[in-house]
Computed example of a mutant assay.
Amino acid sequence: MVLSVSLTGCAAIGAEAGYGARSSASGTATASAQASGAPSTTEVERGQTSTGAKTSGASGSAQLPGLGPRTLAQVPRNTRQVVLVTGDGKDSSTSHVALYRRTDAGWKPGATWPAHNARNGWTNDHHVGDHRSPIGVFTLTDAGGLLADPGSKLPYSQSSGFTISGTGFKGEPLVGSFDYVVAIDYNRRPGTSPLDWTRPLGAAKGGGIWLHVDHGGPTHGCVSVAQEHMKELLRTLDPDQHPVIVMGNAECLAR
């Protein structure tokens, strides 16, 4: 089952949040994905609960740090891998990422990595161009990148459509940002390449929010970590473990 849940009970933080298969942090960035019909500007924000998705409630999830009962309730019962992205503040573009796996003894953490999110921080009502990352719990079902599959357990689509150029918000080069990506299932069709441009919630709600390689600056809406950490995620996230990403600023996730 596919889960896409936004934490709508958390007060709205901003108008939108976004990022795309075309640009990773700069409105001037370009990618060959645009020429192939892939999204020109993408993002991710508020999602919808999937039909029939069963969530865990607080029981069994209490060891995921910093998460309040409402957030914990969105983690599916069958999920055994959680990518936890905790933003440093509602208007901050920096965050940290940790991968947790569920064991018989509870949730076991992996290493914590520095990360970037959208330039303007976080929102639970994302729209195109707001430069904020979506708050919520989203499934992780598909991966891809410009480079060859490094051993991904998720379905992996290698394509020149992940080529990107230009500079980010701090003037940093964006080349290589999409060498490896994991699609976040916000306003997209699971089971397809991250480059798929289907937007079930409509184009205004954005799409194409990914985990991808960090380029040293804020994103338009995605979450980025170092290349070695992206490779580790790709080799670890397992469809049989029903992985999800829990993402947002710390204050909102704690509710």
Score class of each variant (00 low, 15 high):
60 G>V: 03
231 K>C: 04
178 F>I: 10
193 S>C: 14
8 T>C: 04
94 T>S: 07
2 V>S: 13
36 S>Y: 10
9 G>T: 10
86 T>Y: 00
170 K>S: 10
162 F>A: 01
44 V>T: 14
106 G>Q: 05
56 S>R: 08
76 P>F: 11
209 I>W: 02
96 H>P: 02
17 A>V: 09
84 L>G: 01
21 A>C: 05
236 T>M: 12
162 F>W: 02
147 L>M: 15
243 P>E: 09
27 G>V: 15
108 K>M: 08
9 G>N: 12
18 G>K: 05
4 S>N: 05
109 P>L: 00
41 T>M: 13
37 G>Q: 05
83 V>L: 03
197 W>P: 15
52 G>L: 07
60 G>S: 03
35 A>V: 07
135 I>W: 06
231 K>T: 13
57 G>Y: 06
95 S>L: 09
157 S>I: 04
35 A>H: 11
85 V>S: 00
196 D>L: 07
122 W>Q: 12
21 A>V: 02
211 L>C: 06
240 D>T: 00
136 G>C: 03
222 C>E: 03
255 R>T: 15
180 Y>E: 02
192 T>S: 13
151 G>N: 03
121 G>A: 10
213 V>Y: 01
57 G>N: 06
104 D>T: 10
196 D>I: 10
210 W>C: 06
205 K>V: 03
106 G>I: 11
56 S>I: 06
95 S>Q: 12
249 N>M: 08
22 R>K: 08
116 H>T: 11
111 A>Y: 08
177 S>H: 02
84 L>P: 02
136 G>L: 08
229 H>P: 14
174 L>R: 09
114 P>H: 11
91 D>V: 04
162 F>I: 04
103 T>P: 08
7 L>E: 14
56 S>G: 13
81 Q>E: 12
156 Y>V: 05
75 V>R: 00
22 R>G: 08
87 G>I: 00
25 A>E: 06
104 D>Q: 14
168 G>M: 01
152 S>P: 13
170 K>F: 05
255 R>Q: 15
66 G>V: 00
86 T>E: 03
188 R>M: 09
44 V>E: 14
188 R>K: 11
